[in-house]
Structure formats: structure tokens, C-alpha cells
Computed example of a mutant assay.
Amino acid sequence: MKESNIDDFDKTVGLIFATLYQAFPIRKFIDPQILSPLVLPNTDGWEERYHHHKNVFTATMTWLIDAGYLWASPVRDERNGTFSECVLSTKGLEILNMPSSLGPSIGSKLGDAVTDTAGETLKDLAKEALSAGATLAAGLGRSLLGG
């Protein structure tokens, strides 16, 4: 069964967050090769899956930057899916340092989950991180509005 774009998005977020969390505070060059655990080469349909994942990767990176989870050089080649000087933002680091529902921080659990080729753990932890970010943003909004 083909996975939905949202499943691919969640797994991609997990891989990006894990890579940047493990490298923090060093800025990284990030490109679609980060997806290699999800797209096994030389299997039926791998080229089509790679192009799909590359498009999801590029859109995901752009979304994470626009949403304030990470910073990247303004000079990037979105057509080729390459992003330079990437690092977790304050918001991204704070969320990944939060304890996971399973104990250790979300970021450290993501680092361990990279080897999960099915990507289910990555997907679940990415959802947890993005949910924490939304909760954090909602709480900040309420406090700014005096709620």
C-alpha cells in the first residue's frame, strides 16, 4: 500500500530533526540523500519513489524553515533539493530537548530511530515533536494575548 504524503512528511521531518539534533550546533548541508534509509535503491520502482521523496523532502525543508523549526542559508537550491548552513532554531532545539512520552528527549530518541527502515518510530517521534511545537506556540499566543 502506498503511503500518504503526510506519512512521508512525518518520516522526512524525523530524519531531518535527527540529523540536525545530532550535529547541533554545527551547521549542516542537507540534501535528499538524507532519505536513503527510506528509499532502497535497485528495487522495483525505486527511481519513481526517489523523485517523489525528493519533492516531499524539498517541500518539508521549506516548511520547517518557514515554520521556524530550523534556520538555513538564504542561498539554497530548492530545485535540486539542497539546503546549506542548516541548524535547529531555538524553537526546534527546545522541542527536541523535551522529554519524549517514552522517557529520554525526543531528539535522542530520533537519533536512535534513524535505523528503523520502516520509519514508523521516526514518524511517531516527528509527530510528537511537531505537536509539542504547536502546543508551545498556542501557549505563547495565549500568554501574549493575556489568556
Rank of each mutant, 00 (worst) to 15 (best):
A23E: 13
P25M: 13
I26V: 14
R27Y: 12
K28G: 07
F29H: 11
F29K: 08
I30S: 02
D31N: 15
P32H: 13
Q33I: 01
I34C: 01
L35C: 05
P37D: 02
P37K: 00
L38I: 04
L40M: 11
D44L: 14
D44I: 15
D44Y: 13
W46K: 01
W46G: 02
W46N: 00
Y50V: 03
H51R: 15
H52T: 06
H52F: 07
H53Y: 15
H53T: 06
H53P: 02
K54E: 10
K54M: 11
N55Y: 10
V56H: 08
V56N: 07
T58Y: 05
A59I: 07
A59Y: 08
M61S: 08
W63Y: 06
W63H: 09
L64M: 09
G68P: 00
G68C: 01
W71S: 14
P74K: 11
R76I: 09
E78M: 09
R79V: 06
G81I: 08
F83V: 03
S84D: 13
S84G: 11
C86W: 09
V87H: 07
K91F: 07
G92S: 02
G92D: 00
G92L: 00
G92I: 01
E94L: 08
P99T: 04
P99F: 00
S100Q: 10
G103W: 02
P104T: 12
S105Q: 08
S108Q: 05
S108F: 03
L110Y: 01
V114H: 07
D116P: 06
T117E: 10
A118I: 04
T121R: 14
L122W: 00
K123I: 03
D124K: 10
L125N: 01
L125K: 00
A126I: 07
A129H: 01
S131C: 13
A132W: 06
A132N: 12
A132I: 06
T135S: 12
A137L: 01
A137W: 04
A138S: 14
A138R: 10
G139Q: 11
